[in-house]
Computed example of a mutant assay.
Amino acid sequence: MRLALFEPEIAGNVGAVLRLGACLDVPVDLIEPLGFQWDDARVRRTAMDYIDHVSVTRHRDWAAFQASIGSARLLLFTTRASQSAYDFAFAADDVLLFGKESAGAPDHVHAASSARLRLPMRAEVRSLNLAMSAGLALGEALRQTGGLPG
């Protein structure tokens, strides 16, 4: 299983997702362009020492990312979906994809996804934080597939 972030814009969210990947032993893919300057000091500040315990792959663009995942299912988490992540059967080699904080994922990313999933929430609110969404989705996917560590 992998976590992928499409053009993330906020270093703090990326740091939290890297920490999540480190704690749950799940690699993280970052699809550029990023909305912040990537440098060791900034990344270390946001991901703390967890950066040493997670596999991170940066992809120069969407096409490079797509080429890297082969035949794995690409599951897009989006507020535009109707299917709940909790009513979906995950597989151990799925790639869980999350769009950018300000705009989500564009139509071509939606079209390339094997499934579009939604995390249930109250109708009165717009969306969860990116890192919170990744944590909820990954926790359920790993629970279903027996992939939770320890």
Rank of each mutant, 00 (worst) to 15 (best):
V43L: 13
R45G: 08
R19I: 12
V43A: 05
L20K: 00
L24W: 15
R45A: 13
R44A: 06
V26K: 10
R42T: 08
A16M: 14
G15Y: 13
Q37N: 15
M48Y: 07
V28H: 06
R19P: 06
W38H: 05
A47R: 01
L34V: 08
A47D: 01
G35Q: 06
V28K: 03
R45V: 15
R19T: 11
A22R: 08
L18E: 04
A16H: 13
A47T: 03
L24C: 14
I31P: 00
G12V: 07
V14I: 15
L24F: 13
A11E: 05
A16R: 09
D25W: 12
F36V: 03
V28M: 04
G12R: 14
A22G: 06
W38C: 03
G21P: 04
A16W: 09
D39C: 14
G35D: 11
L30P: 03
L20H: 00
W38Y: 10
E32P: 10
A47S: 12
C23F: 05
D40T: 01
V17R: 15
R44L: 06
D25T: 10
P27S: 12
M48I: 12
I31H: 00
C23L: 10
A22T: 06
N13F: 12
G35T: 09
F36C: 10
L20E: 01
P27Y: 10
N13M: 05
D49Y: 05
A11N: 03
A16G: 15
L20D: 02
G21T: 00
G12C: 12
G21W: 05
